[in-house]
């Protein structure tokens, strides 16, 4: 039982780092971005491929990961400004499909569907207890940073833009700057999760990046309240607990997958229904 709780603590901490970052784009910014896993995939493969496949030190992998992530972040924020919100939403899904297709088929570098085994823990603790403490500490630092950001002028600018782009810009708010910062925060969450999650599993596999995982992120933000830091943190913890806990319910393993999908589908449906007035911008143009 304790091992299970520690495992849930690790997974929920790592997932929260991503959902809290994503909350600034989709929740507070109301940007229809469904490509958060693009950032996570780029961060994870950019980090671990040089280390495990080419024998590079962690620092080199980290630099490559950050560089690639920076390019993706700028590309996503640029696209989010060039396209209408709905168009960008569809395009971000397409980008996700493109990146996962590359990961699955570039066997010589990513090992395709087999994934990359033996991801080293390096200086991270080898016990689940130690790992859970590190993950919670990292999450606490991340939450503190985001809480400060949430209280500042950037957050107000983002809210203003999400409520009415024209009104915000007429006051001097730069949409390009605000979008770039929002996507950078989301990428920061992805980078943290890439550093912590793969060494915990000891494996980097594309099966962790399929689209249902993206829907899970959306669900965490919607259920927690779009733009609400503590709400999203609570929702992510509760939903990860539910997702991991369901594996221990005494039903046939072949039913666990469909039961999970049905349950989470119902939660997402209810969450969107309840928050239908706050999920999407009320007014996009004048």
């Amino acid at each position: 039982m304790i091992q299970f709780l520690l495992h849930v603590l690790v997974i929920s901490s790592v997932t929260s780092c991503v959902t809290l970052g994503y909350n600034f784009v989709f929740g507070k910014g109301k940007i229809l971005h469904f490509g958060q896993l693009v950032q996570t995939m780029v961060a994870a493969y950019g980090l671990w491929v040089p280390i495990t496949q080419y024998g590079q030190p962690f620092f080199v992998g980290l630099c490559i990961s950050i560089s690639l992530l920076l390019i993706v972040t700028l590309l996503l924020s640029w696209l989010s400004m060039r396209l209408e919100p709905d168009g960008y939403g569809v395009l971000s899904i397409a980008l996700h499909l493109i990146i996962i297709a590359i990961v699955l088929n570039w066997n010589s570098v990513t090992r395709g569907a087999l994934g990359i085994p033996k991801i080293p823990r390096g200086i991270l603790p080898s016990t689940t207890f130690g790992y859970a403490i590190v993950c919670v500490a990292v999450l606490a630092a991340w939450v503190f940073f985001l809480w400060r950001v949430d209280k500042g002028s950037f957050s107000r600018n983002l809210s203003a833009l999400s409520e009415n782009e024209w009104h915000a810009q007429s006051l001097g708010v730069s949409r390009a700057r605000v979008h770039a910062i929002a996507f950078s925060i989301a990428s920061g969450g992805s980078l943290i999760s890439s550093i912590l999650f793969s060494p915990y599993q000891g494996l980097l596999t594309p099966s962790d990046f399929h689209f249902p995982q993206m829907i899970f992120y959306v669900m965490c933000v919607v259920a927690g309240g779009p733009g609400k830091l503590w709400g999203v943190l609570g929702a992510t913890t509760a939903l990860v607990f539910l997702r991991e806990g369901i594996r221990f319910v005494s039903i046939s393993p072949s039913y666990i997958g469909p039961v999970q999908l049905l349950l989470f589908g119902a939660i997402l449906f209810i969450s969107v229904w309840i928050r239908r007035d706050t999920v999407f911008p009320k007014e996009r143009k004048i």
Partner: peptide
């Protein structure tokens, strides 16, 4: 160049204080 909109350029989800803060913080 300041603009006042026909359909009220006020951010309804924000407090009055925040509405003014946004404008002042966006200044050069």
């Amino acid at each position: 160049i300041g603009r006042v909109f026909q359909n009220f350029g006020i951010f309804r989800e924000m407090t009055l204080e925040e509405n003014v803060q946004v404008a002042l913080e966006a200044l050069p």
